[in-house]
Design a binder for these strands. Structure first.
Lengths: 221, 221
DNA sequence: GCAAAAGTGTTCCAGATACACCCATGT
DNA sequence: ACATGGGTGTATCTGGAACACTTTTGC
């Protein structure tokens, strides 16, 4: 039991977890087991522990839900309208995370909650103001594709230029010219050839590339 | 006296208040009267009331310190390292505000604190992690000059193109070509001539302009 | 040999940059 | 008349957009 001279809000972190799989930008949601919005889908999140930073709290939530760590995580926005949670005043610091499709290995469902990946165009109704949050996160992601190397965070260790282009065109939802894309992405000198090839179909093998500074997201002018 | 089953952090808003005056980008600081960092300069801020949104809290702080309302205010970042305040766990949602030099009318100092404007290159040592915050705010402001109409928020109701150009070159800290600047700023069609002139020195009078949609900050491509 | 994806250059256009002189006024 | 800041146009450069065919492989 804790006591204060004046009222304190609760503080949570929520995490919008994106990945690209099956030609779709996907989002991780959990089905709420608890009281408000019980049974509704929501963003993973939880209370900030008193001895952890906000970043660490978000990273912990991410790890608990997906089992991945060491991925890209960025603070998005903080929401705190007085009535956004019916129980008590809750202020939530929202992060978003990008995880490469290969790292992805869902935990056995925590606390008997259902966990699932949803394509951005097949999202269910969400609890709280989470639909608003998801919209913001997607906008930020789309904007950052243009002026940063953020998209590399979706890629596995090695990848082909076609795979990289797919990620861009899936998220931007537009066709991209192959030659212009290659010129553009190679010009920023953030990726390099591995020397290896991937041969998979009945067609010419593709050069494999890797990110020069994995984990680092650069702003490109 | 308020009681909770688990520990709650305190939540504050801090506001980085910018204006442009005397050929400088200036920042409003208050001298702390209270216990931690007593006597040090700090960003204005305070606890979020339980019935107000975060935006409203920031707007209230801004109004209390400067007496201005209805100005541009944007959320910047939320900081919450466990030990950033020695008293208790404090999570702060930081906003920044841009106020036109003419609206500016400092309140009689609240709570016997000193209040002052400081040029960005003559900042004193700041309390808490406020120097970090100020750095972030300036970076965001500089970045936004390029791709938004945010700079108009510094202008009074009517202004000349030279005055507008001054604001840009002061904040970006670089010379700007007069003809190119005019072409660029007129091309985005966000300002219009008032039909009035300003005549002030022994020189040709300048056309006065006004912002077409005051208060609105547009993203420019 | 054919289907399937990988790879590769050039032309064109628009927006940004560089740059110098005349204009209207107050004293 | 002169000092002061206001106002204007053109040539050039650069980065993005459009666009089609050849190559290498598996079957």
């Amino acid at each position: 039991m804790y006591q204060y001279d004046y009222e304190h809000p609760a503080v949570t972190t929520d995490v919008v977890i994106f990945t690209v799989r099956e030609q779709c930008l996907k989002l991780l949601l959990i089905k709420r087991a608890g009281k408000p919005f019980k049974g509704k889908w929501a963003l993973p999140g939880g209370f900030v522990a008193m001895d952890e930073s906000l970043d660490d709290g978000a990273r912990r939530e991410l790890e608990e839900e997906t089992g991945v760590s060491g991925v890209y995580l960025e603070q998005l926005y903080t929401l705190g309208k007085p009535d956004r949670d019916p129980r008590e005043r809750v202020i939530t610091v929202v992060y978003y995370a990008l995880i490469p499709s290969d790292k992805l290995q869902l935990r056995a469902a925590t606390d008997a909650e259902a966990v699932g990946w949803f394509g951005m165009d097949e999202l269910p109704a969400l609890a709280f103001d989470h639909d608003e949050i998801v919209k913001m996160a997607e906008e930020r992601l789309v904007a950052k594709l243009d002026y940063s190397t953020i998209a590399f965070q979706f890629m596995p260790e090695v990848f082909t230029l076609s795979e990289l282009q797919d990620v861009y065109s899936i998220i931007l939802q537009e066709e991209i010219d192959k030659r212009n894309f290659r010129k553009w992405v190679l010009a920023m000198e953030s990726i390099e050839e591995t020397g290896q090839m991937r041969r998979d179909g009945p067609h010419r093998p593709a050069k494999l590339y890797r990110v020069k500074a994995p984990g680092k997201v650069e702003i490109i002018k």
